[in-house]
Design a binder for these strands. Structure first.
Lengths: 208, 208
DNA sequence: TAGATTGTTAATCGATTAACAATC
DNA sequence: TAGATTGTTAATCGATTAACAATC
């Protein structure tokens, strides 16, 4: 069954809860229980679970937590090993490098790059910073398909082009700018301005 | 006119482009031009502009860039001064503190907090780190309505509760966890797991 | 059996897109 | 005038929600 974009984005929350429940010793879980936890509608969770689970739920019982966890991890791609590179080892880039989450999501950062000549050669968390010139060669050689961009706004498009030249498949963009890419490449923007827009609007509506 | 959530999230991109165009000396802009830049549908941009602009566009010409910029900044709330606190001065928190964007978005960080006794008292970018015990008092005293959470997963809910106790209006959450809050408080999740889920799916579909 | 929870089918809702007349 | 771009009205699309029979 195909899973909607929105449903997919709710999965990590479900997964986290399932793991908690499993740790507490539970073996089964029902849609209404999950819905209560997150203040979602029961029917929404029911649909989401149905779309992720490989087996049918059992009326009155729900789903086996263990199987459901595996199914969700699969849907989310955590079991596919993905190699990535990170470009821009400023404060945000370094914060991300320290983020243990990557491994859990199946992502390994196998190369780090920066434009700043002073940073090239530096060793950060066991990895040597390479010059951005080498991005596309590196990507092709190591068959990297995911690129993380944490450079400043002005450099982002250039870096993006280098990744594209390296035959990258998807880009996770933290630079506050719109990136132009060929059609078949996905750019996922970690768009702080957009998030702030929603927060702002909320505060304004509450007259805060 | 009311603006949809999705449209609101596209505004920062438009705004950025408008400023660029203005810097290049342009005085007017049309929906088709913006659409071309971002590879959006013309009609979508047209609707978005109509929903943000205080004046009607002129057929064959479009909109005055200057007025449109002001209208969008208003819609996005960049002109409302908002004071915020940031909790968790680990690597991510510090990266955010160095983010010059805040000012532009109308946000001033007026207090920083951390649970780690070793960090309390430390001065980071001119601000002294306070203990988390003081969060709710501080928020009430200074009438803070926006809280940024950059603590590890395990501490996030406790911090969140302290913010709620301090009468916060909205929370920008970078911790990879779902936060339970009263109904009238907005939690905007900077949800890396969700973003990664979309990236993963894309790579999987391309067999990468 | 009775009741909780499931899956399915249909209705609603919001956002996007299409079609087109109005106008500078 | 001719053509580009606008605003408006209607159609489509995808996601959410409602209703309900099936079942453990």
């Amino acid at each position: 069954m195909s899973i909607s974009k929105q449903a997919l984005q709710r999965m990590p929350y479900y997964l986290q809860f399932l793991k908690n429940q499993k740790a507490l010793g539970c073996t089964t879980i029902s849609a209404p229980k999950i819905a209560a936890k997150f203040n979602f509608k029961e029917i929404q969770v029911r649909k989401d679970l149905a779309s992720a689970s490989t087996v049918n739920g059992k009326p009155k019982i729900g789903f086996q937590i263990e199987t459901l966890i595996k199914d969700m991890e699969n849907v989310l791609g955590y079991n596919d090993k993905k190699e990535a590179i990170l470009v821009g080892v400023g404060s945000l880039g370094q914060a991300l490098l320290g983020y243990k989450g990557f491994g859990y999501y199946g992502i390994t950062i196998i190369g780090i790059f920066d434009n700043d000549p002073e940073k090239v050669g530096e060793v950060i968390r066991g990895k040597t910073v390479k010059s951005c010139d080498q991005i596309s060669d590196f990507c092709r050689q190591h068959n990297v398909h995911l690129g993380v961009i944490t450079v400043p706004e002005k450099q982002a498009q250039v870096v993006c082009d280098q990744l594209v030249a390296g035959n990258i498949g998807a880009i996770w963009n933290f630079a506050p700018i719109y990136l132009s890419v060929p059609e078949n490449i996905l750019v996922q923007n970690e768009n702080m301005a957009a998030s702030l827009a929603l927060l702002s609007k909320h505060l304004k509506e509450k007259n805060m």
